[in-house]
Design a protein around this nucleic acid. Structure first.
Lengths: 243, 243
DNA sequence: GGCCCGGTATGACGTGCGTCATACGCCGTG
DNA sequence: CACGGCGTATGACGCACGTCATACCGGGCC
């Protein structure tokens, strides 16, 4: 609205996104010209299931969860972070968004109108490849999810979840691996497909046992092996032997 | 091996595949030149999890299940039919196959070496679009699966499964909708994520109640509404009021 | 024929986890 | 301050489903 600072934000944003790295300076300039930046507070909906997908959405910073609404409770399909495109498939296929997107943190987005998006795609085969690679990544994640849902105990699934989160966005600290993500028990439940109560029971027990500590907007894993042991079935997870 | 008939099979196979429709006559000829046809009996593995993906595989006729092996039992991720590509993602990404593929029926395949596949991709942007669309279709299926796994009773999931199969490959007959697919109870169990016993219990009860009849290598749905009623929760599914 | 084997069927038993209910701490608001 | 709402926590109860065991049936093979 006020002139220069906005344009600066867009240029630096475009530069920060890996998908745009391979483009020519000319294409990048064109994107800067047509893209816009928007900010959202925690909890805001980027869009709702069924909304029309008019622009490609790329995350500059912050994290976004993608949620599918179902009669038997919601399901969190994926969490996206900086540099990643959200809902690219819907934009590509001219379809309404199949799921809602909600900010887990204060978030900034770069929006590129569909028209430009397609132009880029046709001109840059490697850009198309980036999309396919992204889709593949998502598929792998979903397959993992389907596989986990089958059979595995809930405690195992939650352990798996935090191991994955640790790999994707954990940082080493003196207390262990820290995951800086404000997830409520409700959200954890939605990610592994269970109820709040069950999630709470497991997480609070883990807190007591020191397997996983819940802090202010973050989690800490003191010892990774204890989680992997739970996943492997080498449990000894409290229930049985208690002094 | 004997000369001419093989070449004929390839040309007619290439013509039968929707993905190749949009290609120029020249490109099609090139594919005919380099692609090969192979036949498999029921039960044969096209490949195993972890095998190297050297060729793009397209189904000419027959059906193929894609199975992920897990400690807690296998999971059937998807069933592919005529005209569809199997394992396209693996070939595309130079990765080993993430899951095994097994024939449900006698099957014929068209194999196109990766090299050609990529050539086509770079030359035909609309070919790339076909791939992305295919990927999208798969993703939608997986999301549906994840969503179903969460919460829904097993009986509901199996009902859902057969409704989907009916839509995708059912034919109307005087007895009801017929699904011509030789699935064992074991395979049904693997598709919805449960054990053989549970699958058997539900299916045999349905047989008694006339909800779904198992025949020789096929299933018959006398009344679609009864299945949708189970999915909706408007059950009255035998358990309670009897006699 | 007798044998084995894979698919189907049915029962008995235990339990993980969903459901319902209750309670506590924290925060923003009137 | 009291009040209500939201997230977290914990107990009691029941049931759907997994597990284990047994049995029947048809087909292939010697």
């Amino acid at each position: 609205m006020s002139g220069t600072p906005t344009a600066d934000r867009v240029t630096s944003a475009v530069r920060s996104i890996p998908m745009f790295r391979g483009l020519t300076a000319r294409d990048q300039a064109r994107i800067v010209e047509l893209a816009t930046v928007r900010d959202y507070p925690r909890g805001d909906f980027l869009w709702h299931e069924g909304d029309d997908a008019a622009s490609l959405t790329l995350i500059i910073h912050g994290r976004v969860k993608v949620v599918r609404h179902a009669e038997a409770g919601d399901v969190i399909l994926e969490i996206f972070g900086p540099g990643e495109p959200v809902g690219a498939i819907a934009v590509y296929n001219y379809m309404p968004y199949p799921a809602s997107a909600v900010c887990l943190e204060p978030t900034s987005l770069l929006l590129l109108p569909r028209r430009e998006y397609f132009e880029m795609l046709d001109r840059n085969p490697e850009f198309a490849r980036a999309i396919i690679r992204e889709l593949t990544r998502l598929m792998v994640g979903l397959v993992r999810k389907v596989q986990e849902m089958r059979g595995a105990r809930i405690e195992t699934r939650i352990a798996q979840l935090f191991l994955t989160l640790a790999d994707r966005m954990g940082t080493e600290t003196k207390d262990g691996i820290e995951i800086g993500l404000p997830l409520s028990r409700q959200e954890i439940a939605e990610m592994v497909g269970t109820t709040v109560e069950t999630a709470i029971r497991i997480m609070s027990r883990w807190g007591r046992e020191g397997v996983l500590i819940t802090g202010q907007r973050r989690f800490v894993i003191p010892a990774r092996e204890r989680l992997t042991a739970i996943v492997e079935g080498t449990a000894a997870t409290g229930d049985e032997d208690e002094a």
